[in-house]
Design a protein around this nucleic acid. Structure first.
Lengths: 230, 230
DNA sequence: GCAAAAGTGTTCGAAATACACCCATGG
DNA sequence: CCATGGGTGTATTTCGAACACTTTTGC
């Protein structure tokens, strides 16, 4: 996910989707996905799958959920086949379990999206019908993000290295879907001590030049999963 | 997990573990686990695996995390084998991905634990070295539980249908590992409106008889995963 | 009556909220 | 000078923590 929207309008959450070239659901859009390579961890595989499909490198990546309903992919779809277990039993594997990761894309990275007719950014809260159960997956990702933005530091990952408080507030407002008081927001962020004043300012604005801050990487994100800051 | 401990001592979290009969890690204890049957959802499979291994039926079940580090299970262990994909590619599958579920066992259910020399309850905060990466899994489960008990209603699932406020407080205290003020606890729970006064009282105590409450099932648990109250 | 836990009332201080107001820049 | 958003000060409200106190039972 990334935050997009014109300079004037409110920014909202958008997703880079990929049009399917194969059945089932040929021609429909889907979340970027793929098989789990033998030598990669789940997180590494998620990151490289995203980059291979869209050209994007995430600012933050975390496991969302493992989806594995029995009929979420029709037989014959990618990921189905036949398995011979170590104990000799042979079974058709018609279940696809997707271990879904959620990624945030910094504003500064969006322009690097691979240009291709089958790759398209779409607003997360107004999507067409997607392939498989991907609409449900997006719903859950939005739910988690809205919950988590209040007690973690995910918001920073939507921005580049340096940012103003107004930009950071814009991220919170877009995710939470409501305006925040600039004065109180400033104090809350300051109290959390998660950002550092770089001393620099943005010039060329029609008003008082805002300070530039950067995220304090010394402090870890909250609840990054069992691997901590790995 | 369940809450255990004598009447006098503080209750703590315990786990029902299963001794492994096969290599690797033969003789060591492990979390109950098993393959994913073709016709069951992930959650159904988790519940039935637990029941088959230990005889226990959980009061609450939710997905914890999908663990899939490359070398978390040695080649040849259960879950490894060979896969032939739908597109014809054949690969050895030496990676085991475990979609781990977390369950709470009500006090009233503990006595039904299958009696067997290879099944044993152990205190979650003082475990021996377990098979595979199961110690890490337990650590993460404890972390999640301690986080979640404050904003969800998981605590109720450790108790039977009817319970006193003192019993509910005992659950919170055991999970959080610190004593709570009975007066403030009462008010907080009352404010959440998650419990209903049954009108009944417990008699036979050496003091004023406490009221019995029950959980208000009309209100869903917080964040039960993407399936809501399914 | 006494011990013990149930249950109520009150005070205190921290933190979220609302909003008035000053500051610094471009035009 | 004015418009605009950056940034500060302060009163109000809400909420959790601490703890004194009253109630109801068994012994």
């Amino acid at each position: 996910m990334a935050l997009r929207g014109g300079e004037d309008e409110h920014r909202t959450l958008w997703l880079p989707l990929v049009r399917r070239l194969r059945d089932p659901f040929r021609g429909m859009f889907a979340l970027p996905g793929g098989p789990l390579p033998a030598h990669l961890s789940l997180e590494q595989a998620a990151g490289s799958t995203l980059e291979r499909a869209t050209g994007l490198v995430p600012g933050y990546l975390e496991q969302l959920y493992a989806f594995g309903a029995v009929h979420r992919a029709p037989a014959g779809a990618e990921g189905t086949g036949r398995t011979e277990w170590a104990d000799g039993v042979v079974q058709p594997t018609e279940r696809v379990v997707s271990v879904v990761y959620w990624a945030s894309i910094p504003n500064t990275e969006i322009d690097r999206t691979r240009v291709h007719e089958n790759i398209q950014w779409m607003p997360a809260d107004d999507l067409p019908r997607l392939a498989f159960d991907h609409n449900e997956i997006v719903e859950y990702a939005l739910h988690r993000l809205r919950n988590k933005v209040e007690y973690s530091r995910i918001a920073h990952s939507f921005l580049g290295e340096e940012f103003t408080l107004a930009q950071l507030r814009e991220v919170y407002e877009a995710i939470l879907g409501r305006p925040l008081d600039p004065a109180n927001f400033r104090r809350q962020i300051a109290a959390s001590k998660s950002i550092i004043d770089t001393g620099k300012r943005v010039e060329g604005t029609r008003h008082r030049p805002p300070r530039l801050f950067r995220y304090d990487h010394a402090l870890a994100f909250a609840d990054q999963g069992p691997l901590g800051a790995a």
